[in-house]
Design a protein around this nucleic acid. Structure first.
Lengths: 242, 242
DNA sequence: CTTTGTGAACGGGTTCACAGCA
DNA sequence: TGCTGTGAACCCGTTCACAAAG
């Protein structure tokens, strides 16, 4: 179809594939799921998977999975399936796991403390490298081996430390101010847990996780079941965003 | 997929409005956002909002907001806007906030502990009424004033206590077992924080929050910016890249 | 044969633009 | 006049079904 990418492209790796670049946003989040499943399969000693198997383990149908992978080029073998290890490598590259990612977390309250201690992040290649808070009782202490710094240090620490992703877990009223600091420090990707709408420049990407919204969607379905109403238009199953 | 369509239910609803029932799933999550914003407006003493204002504060455009609200019937006044209080009431009803919602949280580890202590839930009408864990050191203790019970008590406590929503914040390997217990106890709505795909009967609704996936989507955009590639197909609100 | 990769059909959600009403 | 409510156009993602390839 439309091939906007400029010429040259300087073939990053020595691979002979032509990766039709424009990956749909919806596909990106699923790639992350496939990557996790591939890791489990590899762990289990599996060397090859069919689209049917990988799709099943990921909670999607096989057509969707194949379409998703097709955006990155051809990495399967017809009549056989996909090589677990090489596909894993391909996805890691596509999802930016070959760059070093460094995460800064702002707000070490209830939720922030849990996020700081969550080992799953480091395990997936997203080590939380720095913590920030405004509370002087917290500043200077360590959580999970990571020093808590004062929010005012965000500019120097983030800019100098190569922070690529910021997580905001502050109370709502503080979120925008913190966001501005992160943006000023050059952070262009932000995961926001505060229940407010952040205003950012166009070149900054914000994703929002709103747990109350998730609960309310579930409550809606509870109520609907109870009133015996007709089914809603179903399409998306799972995940969040905003 | 979804359920076998309509089953009678001859609309005994004494409401004067004709609420063209089938609310799109995408709309439901936005209704929750509008509801939060309406609460803030009311708090601030605002009595009327235009679609433009409410949309702006919610991070969507006004056409989408009006379309969303139109699924619930006409609740605005042409030339004026919406009455904050009455619209709030309408949304609360639609989102099941007039039923009493009772949330059970399973897994009081890192994340679970934070969720149990998060005051935002109760504030939004989702009081966490019960906590469960397998760890005998935790069972019997209290978090945020809520007693921690043993997982094996799920059946009786949930069935008897009218739990409508279950949250799973256990390690991955335990999630499916816990899920089965909740389902057996009659819970039909589950919010899953464990990084695994849950298998449930068709009449049970599962939503998944996968923080690692969120980070990986952000990492993808970081990587793409870095390689100067073309923009992805953007659809979801907020932020684009160039 | 088996399973991938993909054009084409389909469907749902967003946006547009204007009719309708206070 | 100003703003809501909504049909219709548009766009994007999902699904289908089959040709291509091992």
């Amino acid at each position: 179809m439309t091939l906007p990418p400029e010429s040259g492209a300087a073939a990053p790796d020595g691979n002979g594939e032509r990766p039709a670049r424009p990956v749909p946003e919806a596909t990106v989040s699923r790639l992350a799921v496939y990557l996790r499943v591939l890791g489990e399969l590899r762990e289990a000693g599996v060397e090859t998977v069919s689209s049917e198997e990988l799709a099943g383990a990921s909670g999607v149908n096989s057509a969707k999975l194949r379409k998703d992978l097709s955006y990155l080029g051809s990495y399967g073998v017809r009549g056989v399936g996909y090589d677990v290890t090489s596909l894993q490598g391909r996805l890691q590259g596509e999802l930016g796991m070959d760059h070093r990612q460094s995460v800064a977390l702002v707000g070490v309250g209830n939720l922030g403390h849990a996020l700081a201690g969550y080992t799953g992040f480091a395990g997936r290649g997203f080590p939380v490298s720095t913590l920030f808070d405004v509370d002087d009782d917290l500043v200077g202490s360590e959580i999970n081996g990571i020093r808590v710094r004062h929010v005012r240090e965000i500019p120097e620490v983030c800019a100098g430390g190569g922070v690529t992703i910021g997580m905001i877990a502050t109370p709502g009223p503080a979120a925008q101010k913190v966001c501005d600091l992160l943006v000023a420090a050059g952070v262009q990707s932000i995961l926001n847990f505060a229940p407010v709408l952040l205003t950012v420049p166009d070149d900054v990407e914000v994703r929002k996780v709103d747990l109350s919204v998730e609960l309310q969607v579930l409550a809606f379905h509870v109520a609907r079941r109870h009133t015996g109403a007709a089914a809603v238009t179903d399409k998306t199953n799972e995940s969040v965003v905003s």
